[in-house]
Design a protein around this nucleic acid. Sequence first.
RNA 1: GGAGGCGUGGUGUAGUGGUUAACAUGCCUGCCUGUCACGCAGGAGAUCGCGGGUUCGACUCCCGUCGCUUCCGCCA
Length: 590
Amino acid sequence: MLRTHTCGDLSKQHIGERVTLCGWVQSVRDHGGVIFINLRDRYGETQIVCDPRRDQESHREAERVRKEWVVRASGVVEARPPESLNPNMATGEIEIACDKLETLSVAQTPPLEIDDSKVANEEIRLRYRYLDLRRPSMQRNLTIRHRVAQAVRQYLSDRGFLEIETPLFVRSTPEGARDFVVPSRLYPGRFYALPQSPQLYKQLLMVAGVDRYFQLAPCFRDEDQRADRQPVHTQIDLEMSFVDEADVFEVVEGIVATAFKAGSGIEVATGFPRMSYQEAIDRYGLDKPDTRFGMELIDYTDLVADCGFSIFSKAVANGGQVKGLNIKGGATMPRREIDELGEFVKIYKAKGLAWMRVTDDGLESSIAKFFTEQELTAIRERAQAEPSDLLVFVADTPKVVATSLGWLRNHLARKLDLIPDDVYNFIWITDFPMFDWNEEENRWEPMHHMFTMPKQEDMQFLASDPGRVKGRLYDLVLNGMELGSGSIRINRPDIQAEVMNVIGMDRAEAERRFGFLLKAFDFGAPPHGGFALGLDRLVAQIAQAESMRDVIAFPYASGVSLVDGSPAEIDEQQLRELRIRVVGTEGDQK
RNA sequence: GGAGGCGUGGUGUAGUGGUUAACAUGCCUGCCUGUCACGCAGGAGAUCGCGGGUUCGACUCCCGUCGCUUCCGCCA
């Protein structure tokens, strides 16, 4: 080794020892005589003191040294003078009295500052990711991610799960997101897809008798960018045989608690509360409710069905709802900001946001005149309104009402600072509908995927009323974010056939796409179920990172790797081998 | 596919229809023996993303375009 210790190792107990450290120069403070160098590595920072009275040669080198140079410093660990102790530094009680300073590598001035208090913009950070990652907070994130992954592996291994890798070149399926596709050279005109998840393979492993499987699986989805999404992300993917929901919940809760403990030391109480999908929608508007604050949705539908305000009464007459929020203390919100809330809900297809200010004298609003005194009183009581509150309303289809108010609620919580720090509200969302009606294509489609087992008591409605059928599927939500999802799967061909029937997939099509799985089920498939947790999202929470990208070493920006510039064109020769011709780029199509 | 935001020295920001384009930090030089966001003095560094238009005059206003970003659609 070129060093005897790291830059985080040394403390008072090493005083008097002769040591050698290697690292990057974080800062140089030249006092004309003595020069202080802060030397940084993954483990910390240590002050190197170059005093010309001790050693002239190393002092001369210290005058030359610049930030981010890689150097090696030898000397004796000394206690700092009492007035020079630095309590803000882990190694602040000691310093290295340097008598040998060696430059291992010089560095150009970096295009961004290696400083947690001066973070550059995302594009620069990603292009020079190797510099961005030098920052202590990023090193910390990478470390936390590693510890979480290790702990999860250990946890699952201890419970009999086998870590098994599944193929990364799989058959493309039109379900779900768009696939990333890889051309085959040996079989021109044919393509592999990168897996969106190991779903089908892990089910095959259950048929194979593996009983308990897990994998930290890379998953690929060709979707448009979102703050909490990456084209490549990692799932803690697991599957278990002979289980029901409670067994899966127990394991997943254990994983989460283990991960938090390992990553941040935070103790998570298991036995997460459960809430049905319908209750989540009714009370919070979203299937991933943030339960860290109140301001739940208030249903006025029955009160305003026959009111004089036609926007409300018509919405009800058309099968819609009128719901709203009570923004406590919001009456002082200026008109301009209320209008902004109106603009906000329009994103979610709401036509507008009605509002009333609650005053000592009653409800003050341009729409108050359309309501009778009794109606206004009823609204106030329903909202438990107090003077200085602001009531807002959306009247629309149940879906628009829920979505717009649900997101408005989250938006307001952030804006009004209603979200407490350091609270981790886990919640299981259960009893999802099996199917979702696709307006455009006029057909039912699976809410989760087509291998989800319907609830026993709803099985009878599969043919007659698919919308009524609930599935044995569940999401885990943390602070309003979906951490993962899973289900109990279908293991019987007859039920599978019925489900495929609902979504309008005939035997031939099913055979073509999933024939291998259906075939497997003919040979004795155990009841099984599983879950997939988003590792990136989980670690981001544990590390309290601003963004999921902060816990991924080399994330993508809009599907582009700013580090290596991919995706990139390939050689003509490669294209020929693959029998691929590029017929046009976006600009010259159409 | 659609909507919004941003784009100004290396980096992060400020800015106004007429400026010498400001500030911080970084960089370079000099001074300084106890700093640790060291300090002090000086210096270099920007055709204000790109193209077009309006105007006597555009970094500023308008249109287009590119890039990044957030969101809708899409998607666990």
